[in-house]
Design a protein around this nucleic acid. Sequence first.
DNA 1: TTTTGAGTTGTTCGA
DNA 2: GTCGAACAACTCAAA
Length: 484
Amino acid sequence: MQDISQSSAPILLWFRQDLRLKDNSALQAAIETGRPLTAVYIHDPDSEAEWSPGGATQWWLHHALVDLNQQLEDLGGQLLIRRGDSLQCIQRLIKELAAESVYWNRRYEPIIRGRDAVIKKRLREDGIEVKSFNSALIHEPHTISKKDGTPFKVFTPYWKHCLKQTKDAPVRVELKKAVFLKSAPHSESISSLALLPSISWDEQFYKTWDPTAKGAARLLKTCVSSKLAGYERGRDILDEDATSRLSPYLHFGQIGPRQIWEAVKAKDNGEKGTYRYLAEIGWREFSYALMYHFPHTSTEPLRPEFADFPWESDKQLMTAWQTGQTGFPVVDAGMRQLWKMGWMHNRARMITASFLVKHLLQPWQDGARWFWDTLVDADLASNTQGWQWTAGCGADASPYFRVFNPILQGEKFDPNGDYVRRWVPELTGLPNNLIHTPWEADAFALADAGIVLGRDYPFPVIEHAAGRARALKAYGLFKATTKK
DNA sequence: TTTTGAGTTGTTCGA
DNA sequence: GTCGAACAACTCAAA
């Protein structure tokens, strides 16, 4: 290998899920060399196999790329777009640019780790300098372990341990010093990646989201200035805008957890909401650690005995759940919010997931797959962790008897039915005391509301008590039989 | 090694 | 309406 430190050859900066210019370790490292750099995004869904971006995340990705390109153009650079096998694209670019170095920020999905390891090895064999950095996590999985060296499997001790560790501040990127390579090699257009839907199911997305760096900065500002104080109370109220909604930005790296940590800490006055919010960042980190240490868990239960759980796959029930036609207003509201917004309130995620897995006995993997395709923040680590937790087969598994009651949850977290009325408008006319239990409405109430059950809104696909009893039985029997 | 305490997010029942 | 106990037993983490 040549002496890279003396080189003035360009650096190829490979953007992946770190679509930001602030707090970007790889970018700052490239700038510090003083050498010219070229930024590229490579569209290579084949290499992500079964976890290539779903429909909703593709929509987001399109806009995030447009935004990043714009930011780079404002600085006199651009975001090159290439399509195809990642390694081949990089090798070709290295030739075209006469580059000698490739920098990127690390990803942690098992498939990606395998892919990137091969790429790193091959490039180094060709004499290319390859450097990878952390920009996606506060604590990378390999840096956190118990005293005996094995990974944590319970959140609370994991997080207590993390809280004691020193944390890196966000990286101050010296954008003014950035030198972009002037020669412009061929770039595909972002729209040629066909990330946007061909039929316009994304109308509501545009009204809901600003998928840009500015959008992320605005939300973070709002979160810190006005949401943290009420977070402890408001975070569970379904129709309240009390959560940060930063998850899709975090997924694509338009904002990084270090930035969030710093901003929140600067405002920390010991309020419970602050601690609680940071713990949510902690859950994201914990999910990444689990994915890293237990790479099979995106498809297989962490607790191996669950491989034999007696799920009762049923296409009709699955469709009723997906389309928000289960007959349980709060469940249907959640599922329809997901469909329209590409996002669902966290509380609703738990309610709908519990309903699918427990009341309907559908495999958690089927639910996870649906979320993967419909969420703009679909993230392999968090999605997997959340579903395994709900199903009781993951880390920190909930006790088997914890079956969310969709009526009670509705009454508790959507007391006035605002959430239901917003997403299930056909129930608007029902009074508050019946909004979560339309099947209990008598003929007069239904007539007043202009509803015919079974025509305008479905009867419950299963009765709550019966569903609960069946779930408890399945989990109970299952436990009894697997003990031996 | 053994022991001890704890474990995101709940529900139901009966006093 | 409110409140505490029961729902079981197991695994994890640390002393």
